[in-house]
Amino acid sequence: MAEETESTKTEPLKTAEEEFKKLEITEEEESELKLETSDHVTFMVEASIAMKFGAVQQYLEVSPAASASATAIPLHNVASRELILILEYYRMHDWVDAGERDLKEFDERFLKDLNYEELKELLLAANYLNVEKLFNFLTKSIANIIRNKDVEFVRTFFGIDNDYTPEEEAAYREENAWAGVKFV
């Protein structure tokens, strides 16, 4: 699989032989697809990565001509900053030389750089694009964040309004006190 110049920034120095091999691969000129985000930024993305997006696959099934033509495939619910993150994630995870430890470190750093709002936006973008690996990574990460949090934190995180009456809520908290709800 071809490597993008962006992902090579973090690579350790390579031997001349490896560099040579890489040149050979890039010379094959992998085909690219043009994607347009909701804020009207166009991206040229390697087909090998773009075809991992369920939304792109679906679009091409309906209008196969788009793969060859200059028309951009519109991604209505993905902004450019989310697409940049998604591409960063997939380029790293597609990189053949990435070891298990590299990926773990990358995932940790990737997650650390996101605040809760960005994390939710990325989750919605991944859901819209139908990108399984990233979607599972994000849902798993959010599950880890809320695992030991209290009800108020979770309401705020998901932007959920409390629709219990104070009496109903008190009753539920009482009933499930053993599971750690009895604060407030």
Binding site: E121, L124, A143, I146, V154, R155, G159, A179, G180
Partner: peptide, 27 residues
């Protein structure tokens, strides 16, 4: 931001039962 219920369920299915019982109080 509105996270659809099927996405919420995908997050919740990864939690231990004790957390889920606590989260019955959310809504």
């Amino acid at each position: 931001e509105f996270i659809p219920l099927d996405v919420v369920m995908n997050i919740l299915k990864r939690l231990p039962v004790k957390s889920l019982i606590r989260l019955k109080c959310v809504s």
